[in-house]
Nucleic acid binder design. Structure first.
Length: 955
RNA sequence: GCCCGAGUGGCGGAAUGGCAGACGCGACGGACUCAAAAUCCGUUGUCCGAAAGGGCGUGUGGGUUCGAAUCCCACCUCGGGCACCA
């Protein structure tokens, strides 16, 4: 009977008195000693400080002529609960890679900062009652300590915290640049607002109402300019989250209409809020994905989120004036037999006839009472109401009824559609529901009818659903436009678009799902807006000299939150309460005046939109990053290369949040000439998560995973059966393993090795504490193969290097070098273990190859590698030693063992010389006794020789 | 429903057109020990067989190929994203 605990605490492998006998055995205690010593040594010797080519961090001697490499982690939130072993997975990966590339000759920039503003830190502060500045500072200190213990090779001089006024001064400055920019659709880039003003003044750009610029009042001019800015205030439907007391961005609302943070209900409400014009960049954000080395899934998520669809706007004449619709299928216009407007559509009132007024009003009331969540309910039944009016189909002049239904959304397209029931499943359902006409305009292929077990017919009363696809058009001509007989959608679309444009009835257009970025938050713990309002209520950015605008200290920092379901509540900024701060007298360049400060703070994504740029030049007081320094680290490398970070590692959860926002900011900075790269992150690698078993009792409550016992495949907690599931490690699932207990038992090098050996870096994998010991044993063997466990010095009885061992070494070097460069640390480790197992059989590590062993290990397990390096007589760090190179001559063996297949099944193996020609190999294979037996009476028809790989005899 | 990804021993995984299961855990056997731990040596996909050896085997079914875990088609299952988006 198996009494094993499935989720075990780390055992103490050195429980015995054995340690007294071997004072220098590689135990957890010794490992910790070695690790602490080397971590101090690295600090004292500034080992990981990386030189810039110019500026205060320049160091020509250290820089030499090494090429650059910028390796970046998604920086963490300094949460109050500390690290568990799942957190550092990506950090260890980037550290191994950075250390390897340093040894491969690169000047590697590798640092770490803290994303310390935002809801998590603030919620923690609210819970504990301590000011977020205090808790954040404490958490950062704690996290730095925990990360240091892993032995990460960060340049400490480049570390930043987003909450540091010296940092957010530049976050505010960048905000001001974006505020003072507009998107020039002619040149497809952002430009300073001053250029726009100049265009108006020169009258090369007409004013919205055509009046000369010089005739406008200064207030009118301000309003026009503000309408162009990349940051603007708008009164629009936003996501109001009473439970958090703030509005949040679309990207922060989950699919089921709740807040990403805190999981509170979110309501759509019209509010006056700050927006960033990310939609201006929609095309570039999609198109430039092609330049990036990202996974297909993240690219797909961004494309999907931006949601570009090409189609046409078409105008239908109606008693209330033209109704404009957006459609992706203008080719189906002849099949448009009714129209549907969203309940909120502004023309509904005018279109509704007196007889229908009551019905429409009732329907609209019901629709508005439904939240977004309720509208999405899987209730597939279509609802709707007739307005009483008709509109004119522009291609055939038919009068078609106009309906109102909530399956049409005001927030997408124009909030109105032309319904083509024969070619659109939703329209088909709606038409069936309300008995509307379904004219056929395409002749579906016979297979389609067969598939639905009906005879081919254009009588749609027999059709079970709409037909979508390429098929010959029918009933689609008006004399000028004739689609009949065309067999594909693209051609028909093209002709229809031409006709629409020629007759002024519509035009091709592109529609996006992406909305502008709601940028203001009614919370405390964030960057204050560097904005003040004048007596007319017009916003102005603070001059650079007044930055940073520091977050005012207050004990009254808790945001005003509400009953999470109280949709009618209104946001109240904590900063609003600080009258002394809000009402100020300032000189913005035209003498001292009274102003009111904006009391919003920025969303938590603001600081992470540009942090990698500050790592480059952290001490620069004159600008956020020096242009030459940015060019060196992030500049494009050749034609078609967008520039950016060489390797960015982080979780997939930021696919449409941080990764979209940061690309947007970076592109604005590029347009305004501040950075040479057009993308911030050239290569993105998504590390997996460390999963751990979690156990629920029958009440669906998680129980302490470490108290669960397994008996015959069943799980029990305090005697009662519990069910197992796998989830991200964490406090809420009561299954978090602290790195401290792994350090105590085995040391940080073993933890690093285990996390890297568990599987490929991009796969999620379950944590198994009992598996960790395998990597510990490996390091122990490495140590023992070289070090005398009694004296702690290099063994005097090491075996001599033989040819087989030397060849094994070079094969290992060759494979490990390749794997490390490909981020395949798990197989690199396997190869090192194989070599070490060979050395163990040999009786130790020959002195001649000891250095190479230490060098190959050092990216993975830097502390033990430094220690071995020192024992081998070196006085400097192993960090910048060149990684071993395989001797090509030793990779080729004199003779090779070649498997011989008969009809695809391996029947024997033959030894041939490496340079044997195909014919010799063929003869040797056919002469092999086992092959002769396997062939029996049958004679070979064909013999395939794959040089160096195998022989296959076909009978 | 649409899009992306993944299915290989008891477990984590390796092999991306050429010897399936590298490496690690666990399990089993042995050496050492009074004993245990640790360590070292060996076995470990499965079925038949005393053995030699052989059959079967990478979610399922088909296909391409001398040869398929790997490529193609269809399906199943799981994970992730989007979703009444016109």
């Amino acid at each position: 009977m198996n009494q094993d605990s499935p989720t075990t605490r780390a055992p103490d492998p050195d429980s015995d008195s054995d340690q007294h006998q071997y004072a220098h055995r590689y135990t957890g205690a010794l490992a910790q000693q070695i690790e602490a010593r080397w971590q101090d040594w690295w600090d004292e010797h500034h080992t990981f400080e990386t030189p810039n080519p110019s500026g205060p961090l320049a160091d020509a001697e250290r820089l030499g002529d090494r090429p650059k490499l910028f390796v970046l982690d998604m920086f963490p939130y300094p949460s109050g609960t500390g690290l568990h072993v799942g957190h550092p997975l990506g950090f260890i990966g980037t550290d191994v890679y950075s250390r390897f590339q340093r040894m491969a000759g690169y000047n590697v920039l590798y640092s770490m900062g803290f994303d310390a503003f935002g809801l998590p830190a603030e919620q923690f502060a609210v819970q504990t009652g301590q000011h977020p500045a205090i808790t954040t500072a404490e958490n950062v200190v704690n996290m730095r300590r925990q990360l240091r213990r892993i032995g990460l090779s960060h340049d400490p001089r480049r570390s930043i915290e987003t909450t540091d006024p010296a940092y957010y001064r530049w976050t505010q400055w960048i905000f001001s640049q974006i505020f003072n920019a507009w998107y020039d659709t002619d040149t497809q880039r952002a430009r300073p607002v001053a250029d726009l003003v100049a265009q108006f003044e020169a009258e090369s750009r007409p004013t919205p109402d055509g009046r000369p610029w010089s005739d406008l009042s200064s207030n009118e001019r301000v309003r026009i300019i503000d309408g162009y800015r990349l940051v603007y205030i708008s009164e629009a439907p936003v996501n109001w989250c009473p439970g958090l007391g703030t509005v949040v961005a679309n990207e922060e609302v989950t699919a089921d209409g709740r807040s990403d943070r805190g999981n509170f209900p979110v309501f759509k409400r019209n509010m006056r809020q700050w927006m960033m014009r990310i939609t201006a960049y929609a095309d570039r954000l999609i198109d430039d994905l092609d330049l990036l080395d990202w996974t297909d899934s993240i690219k797909a998520m961004q494309r999907n989120w931006i949601g570009r669809s090409e189609g046409a706007r078409v105008r239908f004449a109606s008693p209330a004036g033209p109704i404009t619709v957006f459609t992706t299928r203008p080719d189906t216009l002849f099949g448009a037999s009714f129209m549907v407007l969203a309940p909120e559509h502004p023309l509904v009132d005018t279109l509704t006839t007196p007889e229908q007024r009551q019905a429409v009003a009732d329907y609209r009331r019901t629709a508005s009472a439904k939240s977004d969540v309720a509208r999405q309910v899987v209730d597939k039944t279509k609802t709707g109401v007739f307005t009483g009016s008709t509109a004119t189909n522009p291609v055939n002049g038919e009068q078609i009824p106009v309906w109102v239904a909530d399956y049409v959304l005001m927030g997408y397209g124009t909030g109105a559609i032309m319904a083509v029931p024969c070619g659109d499943e939703r329209d088909f359902e709606f038409a069936r529901q309300f008995g509307l006409q379904i004219p056929a305009i395409q002749q579906p292929p016979p297979a389609w009818f067969d598939g639905h077990s009906i005879g081919p017919s254009l009588d749609t009363r027999h059709w079970p659903q709409a037909f979508v696809g390429d098929a010959p058009y029918v009933n689609s001509t008006n004399g000028q436009l004739d689609l009949n007989g065309i067999t594909n959608v693209a051609a028909a679309t093209h002709q229809t678009n031409d006709w629409l444009v020629a007759h002024g009835q519509g035009e091709p257009t592109i529609n996006y799902k992406l909305r502008d970025w709601l940028f203001s938050r009614q919370r405390y713990w964030g960057e204050p807006f560097p904005i003040v309002y004048d007596e007319h209520g017009n916003p102005h950015t603070l001059p650079d000299a007044l930055l940073p605008l520091e977050l005012p200290p207050t004990d009254d920092f808790a945001p005003r939150t509400f009953d999470p379901d109280d949709a009618q509540s209104n946001p109240e900024s904590p900063l609003d309460r600080l009258d002394w701060w809000v009402d100020v007298e300032l000189d913005l360049g035209d003498g001292p005046k009274r102003y009111r400060r904006d009391t919003n703070v920025m969303p938590q994504w603001a600081g992470s939109c540009w942090y990698e740029l500050r790592y480059l030049d952290p001490t620069n007081e004159a600008c956020f990053v020096d242009r030459d320094v940015e060019q060196y680290w992030m500049g494009p490398q050749g034609d078609g290369h967008p520039g950016g970070v060489d390797l960015y590692v982080g979780g997939v959860e930021h696919a449409v949040l941080h990764l979209l926002y940061a690309r947007f900011w970076h592109k604005v900075l590029h347009d305004l000439g501040y950075v040479s790269s057009i993308e911030p992150y050239h290569r993105l690698f998504n590390q997996g998560y460390i999963l751990a078993a979690a156990f629920k009792d029958e009440r669906e409550i998680y129980v302490d995973a470490f108290g669960v016992e397994e008996r015959d495949g069943q799980f029990f907690y305090e005697g009662t059966a519990v069910s197992r599931e796998w989830g991200k490690m964490g406090k809420s699932l009561k299954n978090a393993v602290s790195p401290d207990e792994i350090y105590d038992a085995y040391g940080a090098d073993t933890l690093r090795l285990y996390e890297m050996a568990m599987g490929p870096l991009d796969a999620s994998r379950p944590w198994e504490t009992r598996d960790v010991i395998g990597m510990y044993r490996f390091l122990q063997r490495v140590w023992r193969n070289l070090v005398d466990e009694e004296s702690g010095t290099v063994r005097s009885d090491l075996p001599a290097l033989d040819d087989a061992t030397n060849r094994a070494l070079h094969r290992t070097i060759d494979g490990v070098r390749r794997d490390m460069g490909d981020l395949k640390f798990n197989t690199a480790i396997a190869k090192l273990i194989e070599l070490n197992n060979h050395l163990t059989k040999l009786g130790g590590c020959p002195r001649d190859i000891a250095e190479q062993m230490a060098l190959m290990l050092s990216p993975l397990t830097p502390h033990i590698a430094e220690e071995l390096w020192q024992l081998l007589g070196h006085t400097d760090s192993i960090t910048y030693e060149p990684f071993p190179q395989a001797d090509a001559a030793l990779l080729i063996d004199d003779t090779i063992l070649v498997p011989v297949q008969v009809d695809g099944k391996v029947r024997s193996r033959i030894t041939v010389t490496a340079d044997a020609d195909d014919d010799a190999v063929r003869q040797a294979a056919l002469a092999d006794p086992k092959v002769i037996i396997a062939l029996g009476n049958s004679s070979p028809r064909k013999v395939i020789v794959v040089p160096g790989r195998l022989v296959n005899i076909v009978t």
